[in-house]
Amino acid sequence: MKGFRLAWKKFTRDRLAFTGFVIIFVLLLAALFAPVLAPYPEDTFQIHPADRLQPPSAEHLLGTDSMGRDILSRLLFGTRVTLVIAVIAVGVSLLIGVPLGLVAGYFENLFSEGIMRVADIFLSIPQVILAIFLAQSFRPSIRSVILALSITYWPWFTRIVYAETRALKKRAFLEATEAVGAGSLRTIVLHVLPNVSSSIIVRSSIGMGFTILTAATLGFLGVGAQPPTPEWGVTIAESRQFLPDAWWYATFPGLAIFIVVMGFNMLGDGLRDILDPRIRRGFD
């Protein structure tokens, strides 16, 4: 408990990390209360062609889109889409990637070799290319995006956990625990996992941001969420043909992506400093 309080204190002192935390907290609130917060909650599906492409005004703070819908309202509802995609995709990747990485790293047999070979195959092609390909194959939808991102993201966890575990194994204390007679599973869970957890957290933090970016990219390229889903990437893609006149149409969804991803990155960055025990013994 004392450790936690210490961490929290350190956390609130770390301005970047705390800002990140606040951003994500606000994001969660926005997602939860979107129907209350949005000035025109019905604009997720309701269209008003007569109000097409209105610049920001008191009535529409961030302007309207090509269908006369309030952009602010759609951005707020977009937070739900974004969160659902990112949380599930990263969660699934973690669940697949981390155990595989631990096993592959800890044991040195054909099976672990096999795992890393498969992971290598997935990593031998840029993630976005494979994700576009998969999302298109499943037929573009939010579910396809989640599937595509999960399938392509787990090897990153595997590789990092694997590398860390192998490095750890070289150090004496693991051999010592084994010599004492601790079982493999016990050693993995009690000794290896805590030691690689900081890397997992850093990867997850980057992963959340990265996943949101990739999902938006898929939406932008037309192989992700479909209209009228208020997904941010889709909105930016729709806006392009109305540039430069309807600048607000492209600008605000991009800012939303930026702020949210920034939040996750800052949080992850801060957590890394706090959670990594080695840092406390660092130079400062």
Binding site: L16, F210, G254, F258, I259, V261, M266
Partner: peptide, 16 residues
Amino acid sequence: VAGLAIASFWLGIMLQ
């Protein structure tokens, strides 16, 4: 942190 948070397609469009 900002650099990693910007969607590159959006950055490109904004620069354009």
